[in-house]
Every structure is written in structure tokens, then in C-alpha cells.
Nucleic acid binder design. Structure first.
Lengths: 102, 102
DNA sequence: ACCCAGCATTCCTTGACAGGCATATAACCA
DNA sequence: TGGTTATATGCCTGTCAAGGAATGCTGGGT
């Protein structure tokens, strides 16, 4: 949580892991197969994601099942908000313009 | 453009620069004063932001006026989209639950 | 108790910045 | 032209993160 979500998301492999987990929670081994990375690499990325609160983990026998937690993403979304309104405002202006042309 | 917007945004100083430019476009010197960083540091960050298309620059006499371009941020927003719907969906469910309690 | 599967962690090496300082470049002015 | 302001860039160094290989650890099965 003390960790910067932006910095964590800067790594493409981690975004791929999240994109995979977003569809189905999965074990480390499943991620290894799906993403074609080494098991230590996946485990390390999961560690970073976990420290940032972006994923949570439950134990099922010898396997760890990971799933996404969106909480830290809201901080990212919040930062993005004012910028988003910049382009939606412009879009609105564009729409008004187009409407006025009809 | 070939540059990853996420990686560029990973640097807190660069987000601060964007946050400043979002309110008012400004010259390098103004950013230096506002953010309390060295001029070379600011110039280097601006270079990275420019290469990523996050800012554009026009020349006014000996000064360069920088401003935000939101285009690359839409890619970030698009990536975030499915996650955002994850928590809004949950919020909707929560609201329904609370409503049913009244 | 032993062995194995599934993960985590360590060590090591390599590469990618970030910041400071000095310097180059460009535009303006006298 | 020479000087000055405003900005960009080069060089150097310290720091940190990523990936590979090997190893540690834990729970389950026999």
C-alpha cells in the first residue's frame, strides 16, 4: 500500500498477469503456462503485486490461488479523472459542433 | 509514441509536472520554480514526456511553452476500463443491497 | 518417514534510469 | 559582434529492478 501503483503497473508483464487474473483467478503454475515466463519470474511479480495490494492470495492445498483486488486501481483512476474530463469535455464540444452542423 | 505511457507515468516527478501543466501551460523555468527541481531534471522529464506524446511544446521567443496532450492517457484509461467496471459493478450490487435494507 | 509437486526466496549479473554538474545551443538584446 | 537569458544535452555515478539458476520451504501422498 505504501507502494506506488503506477510504478507497479509500469512493468508490462505485471499488467499481463493482472489481465489474466481479471478473467479467471489462477494459480502460479497456470500463470506460468499462460504467460510463458519462468516460475520464479512470475512469483516475483506476484510478490510485487501483492505488496501493492493489487492481488490477493488464498491457499488451496499446495497451490496459491491469486485474484485481482481493484482497490489500488482506484487511486490510478482518481489521478486520471481530471485528465479524462479534459478529453470528454472536448468530445462534448465536438458533438455540439457536429450537432449544430445538421 | 512507441513509448509506454505507464512507464513514463511511473515517475512521480513526471506526474507532478503533468498535474501542473494540466492547470496552466508553462515554460520550463516556471516548472522549475513551481516544483523545486533543477532545470536539467525538468528538461529531461519533459523530454521523456514529449517522446511519449504526453506533452507538446511551442516556442515563444527563447522560451518553450509546454502543455498537456491527453491522447496517450486514453490508452491508460482503456486499459483501466475493464477493471473500473469491476468495482462499479460491485458498487451497484452494494447499492442494491443497501436499498433492500431500507 | 520419504518423496514429490508447487511456490517462494536468494544470489548474482546486467541494464535502465534519475540526479548533479558542466557544457552546448538558440534566441534575444545592446 | 558580444553578452545574456532560457533551455537542452552529455558525462558520470549511484541506485534499483528484472531475469536466470539454484535452493529453501510447505503441504500432500504413499
Amino acid at each position: 500500500m505504501t507502494v506506488d501503483a503506477f510504478a507497479v503497473l509500469a512493468e508490462p508483464s505485471r499488467r499481463r498477469i493482472l489481465d489474466r487474473l481479471r478473467r479467471t483467478e489462477s494459480s502460479v503454475g497456470e500463470l506460468v503456462d499462460a504467460l510463458g515466463m519462468s516460475q520464479p519470474a512470475v512469483s516475483k511479480h506476484l510478490r510485487v503485486l501483492r505488496d501493492a495490494g493489487l492481488v490477493t492470495c488464498r491457499t488451496a492445498a499446495q497451490r496459491r490461488i491469486y485474484r485481482v483486488d481493484t482497490a489500488p486501481l482506484r487511486a490510478v483512476d482518481d489521478w486520471l479523472e481530471p485528465y479524462r474530463s479534459m478529453w470528454t469535455t472536448h468530445l462534448d464540444a465536438l458533438e455540439r459542433h457536429l450537432d449544430s452542423q445538421e
